[in-house]
Structures are given as structure tokens and as C-alpha cells.
Design a protein around this nucleic acid. Structure first.
Length: 580
RNA sequence: CGGAGCGUAGCUCAGCCUGGUAGAGCACUUGGUUUGGGACCAAGACGUCGCAGGUUCAAAUCCUGUCGCUCCGACCA
């Protein structure tokens, strides 16, 4: 391709709307353009890279035995009602109406559709296992789209769904996808690591997210130095707080004391009260299925909402409003506690964090504004209906499995593998007959890769101060030829000859045939990040040489006659390296 | 949804406080000079100042509403 024939609208200045480097480079390098918030058009360069990521994904999915299909983006709401996700996923569902006023949803994912499909077409164990995948557009009504392609209203996703006859079979399918994902991201030139992920209301321990370490990521990941433990912060657990809970009990009964205006852990920890945060019980109130539920964590701990969801068995819950709380507990947030509860709170569930087990000599709210209770012994004074891990782990705590101190870093989630079980197959009747004639729901798994997000993650991980540094495997073009000279010059003639020869060999070449100054061409070359550049200037050409230069690497003079061979060699080496 | 900020040329922004003929740099067009890391000179084209209402002799500027964008938080199958 000739530069003057395509469209590569590079920007010298950084658009004000882009905050993170990958987003800035997407715009500056002419990869994408924004239509409006969360919606982007891919320009010629961007589309080429996107197609390459998709191609790698298809090759590895096919290699893993998955079957490509294509399912509708527009879906009937009925199947969403059947799985219950019409309500639980309501926040992200785009809904539209047709001329007859019938409602439709724009698919944010395709579990319902694929399971309906399988329910109709697969009846026997002889037809299983199967794994179906597609690459297509998803729609999500994100509360806050941001960071360009990272969190968009419309994005491209590869989603796969496996159907097995047994749990063991489902595990094998899961493992195959896990391995395929590892290969996919490696081939894209991305350094990723897999972390244990929250399984939400479905439960179980089989969910991993593939993460790209990046300060701009939206996920916190807990990990240990050896690499033998890594988990999303939503899932991560530890051996407990670094300062274990004490039993500094006086043995006395809970004692009420006045704390006028004190409604925070910090205020109670400060003078004149001086109650350390780890000697306080934090009382949180949630509205779950229409009922108030108390959650107790240590004063210095943070409740983890993903763990709460698992505990509640639903993701549909919210913090109770002060009005709801006062009506039941008789006090406002900041003065709440589970020791003495009014009659209006009879039967209320009290879920306490494991870190509070055995705690005595604690201080908590008295359910009376302006008062707290001290000398509280949680096992003696509080009727705990359930103990559970509710807290968010902190840096330095010891890993349950390896005993190493936990560290926390930010990361971008680019892929997710999940063992679903039979939740969807049961609800949508995806049943098969076993060898001995019994009806069983298929055991499912689902596997997603954010394709457009992956593309941006590559840039986030692979760039320098001058621009993008595309890995050879996903670069829009493998080689950029930069002749320094106008049309008709000797340098341009040499460039044309090399362009023809490389193209003949099947190498993807971009020829910068613009009549521009060298500085402009070099700056743009660095910005758009083609991994290998061939410079052709009068001085070197007079010596019978061209200049071969990897992006970000050293310049190598090569005789004109050997140039095509040398370029082909480097391209092949790099592709082989990435493809493992 | 709560908090903050911003909407002026394709891009980056000034002008607004203190109302009075809409600006700069980059990009674009033409001509010339240049040509190894975002050139220079000259001429030119490009604007419903986000939108709507109000105040005023007069509104980019003041007031009200509204839409959009960005950031923080909440939220995130």
C-alpha cells in the first residue's frame, strides 16, 4: 500500500479527550476515530491490526477444536427472562422497540442464544462435546465508557461456549481454552498472566482472567512473588489481617458510652476516644431481595462487594439508604451495631467476616445516634447468622497457599475463562440423553476475549515516547519503506523496486510515497509503529546501500541487492518468535 | 446517579472576569525557496463561539435551562 493512497491521519498534538497513552496513540497514529463517547470507527490501519488479532484468535480456536458460528446481535427478551438475566443484567442491556412496539435486546453476550441453539439441535451424548465460538459485536450500556476502546458501549468480542456431558469433560474443555488463550496472547505479542477470578453467584473455583499488567487497568490483582498465586482482588483471600484480632476482654458486659457526632471509624480512633480501627466492628447494611442484611467487618477492613454477592447468592443488592436503616435499626449509619437491635430488626440476617471470629473487647455502634458500645465480645454478644470471608485482602498479608506476602497491582482484563456448570442449560432446556437413556443438562463453560480491548492493551504495553511499537504479528503492515526524495528521484525508484519485490514475496509493505521532508516521515513512521523500516536516502544509496531499521532498534546498512532477502529474513524471524 | 472541569476553525488552545466588527499555532489550498528527525516566505480558504431561551441599544462574554465530552467516585452479567 502506498501512503498517499490510503488514509493515515496522524496528529501532531494529543487530543484533549484521551487520558491514557494507548488511547492517545490510537488517535494520534490514525488507528481509530471517535464517533461519540464509547463508539469508535476503525480506520484502515486499525482495521488491519484488528483483523490480525481476529485471525490469530480464529487459528487458535480452530486448533483447539472449537467451531465457528455467528449469532444475532438482536435478541428476543424472552430468553433473557428465562435465565433471569433480564433483571440481573438489566443495567447493561440495551433495549429497542420495533414498529409493532415489540421489545428486543442488543446482546451484551450470547449464553442465552447459544444455549437455545444447542437445546434445539443437540439431543444425544453422541453429539457432545462441542465448543462453539464467534467473533462479533457486543453492546453494553456501560455506566461510564472510558479510555477509548477499553470500556466501550459497542465492542468486538470473541466468545466461546463449551458443552460437555460430564464435569470432567467440562474441565478438559476449560483447560483447552485456558491453553488456547495463553497461545493467543503470546502470539499477539502481549505479556499476560492468568489470575483466579470471582465466580459470582455461579460459584465454584473455575474461573480465570487473563490480565495485562498496566497502571491504567481497571482491575486490582493480588499476587505473590513466586507467581504461584494470583487472583483478582474481588476473589483474593489471605491468611487474615496482619494484626490478628485480640481478646483483650475485661469480661464485663457491653457498656454504652456517649460519642456525640462520631460517625466514622477514623473519628472513633482519634482522641478523645482512641479506639484503634482494628478494635472496632464496622456495621454495613445492604438491601438484598427486599430485606435488610447486616454485614460486619473489622474497622480497618474493606468489605468486598463481589464476596458479598457470592454470600447473598445474587448480584442484585445495594447499600441501604439512611431512611431504610433508621426505620429498622433506629439509628443512622455511623452509630450502627448488631449487639442490641430493636424489635423492628427481628429476624435480620447478620453476616460476619471471618477475621472477627473470637474478637472480644471490641467497640461498635449502639443503634442510638451519638452512642457506641465497648467491651463487646462478638461470640457472646452478637447473634451471627453466618460467618464468611467478606474482606478485601491487603498488601503484605500472607497467601493461603504459598505463605508469601501478597502484593497488589493494576491490570487490564483481556480474557476470561469460566466453568458455568448447568445453570443455563437447565433454564433453557439444553438436555441430552446419556448412553443409558437418562436426560441430563449439558455442562457448560464460557470463554471471552475482548478483541478491541486486546488491541489497545497491546499499545498500552508496547510503545515508547515516539509512538506505537507494534509486535510484528499484529502490526498493520510488517514493513515501512521510507524513501527520502520526491517522485521520480533515484531514492523513490529504489523504493518502488523494493516495494514490488517485497510485495511479490507476500510481505505486507507500506510505502511512504509522500513528497514530504525527512523529519515528517520519520516522526510519522515512529508514531504508527511499523516494526521494520527501510530507509532509502541519497547518501547511502550512493554507496549502494539501504538502511534497515527495526522500530526502536539499531540501523543496519544493507546492500541494495540483498535488501529484500534481509527484510524477509527479519520478518520471518520475528513472526516465528511470536508464534512460538 | 453524586462531585469536578470543559464545549470557540479539522487539532491544540487564547479571548469570557470587566458585554462593543471572532483570534493564535498546527493542519489545509496556491506560488516560491527548502529537504537525513514534525522547514521558511507570501497569499488564501476554513466559525450557526454546543443548543435553546432570557437580560441588554449590543452577548462567545452576563443569567436560566438543556445537550455533549472528560476526570474522580458509585456502579460494572
Amino acid at each position: 500500500m502506498r501512503w498517499t493512497q490510503t488514509l493515515i491521519p496522524t496528529l501532531k498534538e494529543t487530543p484533549a479527550e484521551a487520558e491514557i497513552i494507548s488511547h492517545q496513540l490510537l488517535l494520534r497514529a490514525g488507528v481509530v476515530r471517535k464517533l461519540t463517547g464509547g463508539l469508535y470507527s476503525f480506520l484502515p490501519l486499525g482495521l488491519r491490526s484488528l483483523r490480525k488479532v481476529e485471525k490469530i484468535i480464529r487459528e487458535e480456536m480452530d486448533r483447539a477444536g472449537a467451531l465457528e458460528v455467528q449469532m444475532p446481535a438482536l435478541q428476543p427478551p424472552e430468553i433473557w427472562q428465562q435465565t433471569g438475566r433480564y433483571e440481573t443484567a438489566a443495567d447493561v442491556l440495551y433495549k429497542v422497540r420495533d414498529r409493532a412496539k415489540k421489545e428486543w435486546v442488543l446482546g451484551p453476550t450470547h449464553e442465552e442464544v447459544i444455549t437455545s441453539l444447542v437445546a434445539g439441535e443437540i439431543n444425544s451424548y453422541r453429539q457432545l462435546p462441542k465448543n462453539f465460538y464467534q467473533v462479533g459485536v457486543k453492546f453494553r450500556d456501560e455506566i461510564r465508557p472510558r479510555f477509548g476502546l477499553m470500556r466501550a458501549k459497542e465492542f468486538i468480542m470473541k466468545d466461546a461456549y463449551s458443552f460437555d456431558t460430564t464435569d470432567e469433560g467440562a474441565m478438559a474443555s476449560y483447560r483447552r481454552m485456558y491453553d488456547a488463550y495463553t497461545r493467543i496472547f503470546t502470539r499477539c505479542g502481549l505479556k499476560t498472566f492468568a489470575v483466579e477470578a470471582d465466580t459470582g453467584v455461579i460459584g465454584g473455583n473455575y474461573s480465570h482472567e487473563f490480565m495485562v499488567p498496566a497502571e491504567t487497568g481497571e482491575n486490582d490483582v493480588a499476587y505473590v512473588e513466586s507467581g504461584n498465586y494470583a487472583a483478582n482482588i474481588e476473589k483474593a483471600s489471605s491468611r487474615g489481617p496482619l494484626t490478628p484480632v485480640g481478646r483483650s476482654s475485661t469480661g464485663g458486659a457491653p457498656e454504652k458510652f456517649a460519642t456525640p457526632g462520631v460517625v466514622t471509624i477514623e473519628a472513633l480512633a482519634a482522641a478523645p476516644y482512641g479506639v484503634p480501627a482494628d478494635r472496632q466492628i464496622k456495621t454495613l447494611v445492604y438491601l438484598v431481595n427486599g430485606k435488610l442484611t447486616l454485614c460486619l467487618v473489622r474497622g480497618d477492613d474493606q468489605a468486598n462487594e463481589a464476596k458479598l454477592a457470592g454470600c447473598f447468592g445474587t448480584t442484585v443488592f445495594r447499600a441501604a439508604t439512611p431512611e431504610e436503616i433508621v426505620g429498622t435499626l433506629g439509628a443512622r449509619p455511623g452509630s450502627l451495631g448488631a449487639v442490641q437491635m430493636p424489635a423492628t430488626a427481628a429476624g435480620i440476617q447478620v453476616i460476619a467476616d471471618e477475621a472477627l471470629r473470637g474478637a472480644a473487647g471490641m467497640t461498635t455502634g449502639a443503634n442510638e445516634d451519638g452512642f457506641h458500645l465497648r467491651h463487646v465480645d462478638i461470640e457472646r454478644d452478637i447473634r451471627v447468622t453466618r460467618w464468611a470471608d467478606l474482606r478485601t485482602v491487603k498488601v503484605g498479608e500472607l497467601s493461603v497457599s504459598t505463605g508469601e506476602p501478597i502484593q497488589i497491582r493494576r491490570a487490564i482484563e483481556v480474557g476470561h475463562v469460566f466453568k458455568l456448570g448447568t445453570k443455563y442449560s437447565e433454564k433453557l432446556n439444553a438436555m441430552f440423553l446419556t448412553e443409558d437413556g437418562q436426560r441430563h443438562p449439558a455442562v457448560m463453560g464460557c470463554y471471552g476475549i475482548g478483541v478491541t480491548r486486546t488491541l489497545q492493551a497491546v499499545i498500552e504495553q508496547s510503545h515508547d515516547k515516539d509512538g506505537i511499537r507494534w509486535p510484528m504479528s499484529v502490526a498493520p503492515y510488517q514493513v515501512l519503506i521510507t524513501p527520502l526524495g520526491a517522485a521520480g528521484s533515484e531514492t523513490m525508484k529504489a523504493a518502488e523496486a523494493l516495494y514490488a519485490e517485497l510485495t511479490r514475496r507476500g510481505i505486507e509493505v507500506l510505502l511512504d510515497d509522500r513528497d514530504d521532508r525527512p523529519g515528517v516521515k520519520f516522526k510519522d513512521a515512529d508514531l504508527i509503529g511499523i516494526p521494520l523500516r527501510v530507509g532509502i536516502g541519497e547518501k547511502s544509496l550512493a554507496k549502494g546501500e539501504l538502511e534497515v531499521k527495526p522500530r526502536g532498534g539499531a540501523l543496519e546498512p544493507v546492500p541494495v541487492a540483498r535488501a529484500a532477502d534481509r527484510v524477509a529474513e527479519i520478518v520471518a524471524q520475528e513472526m516465528t518468535r511470536l508464534n512460538g
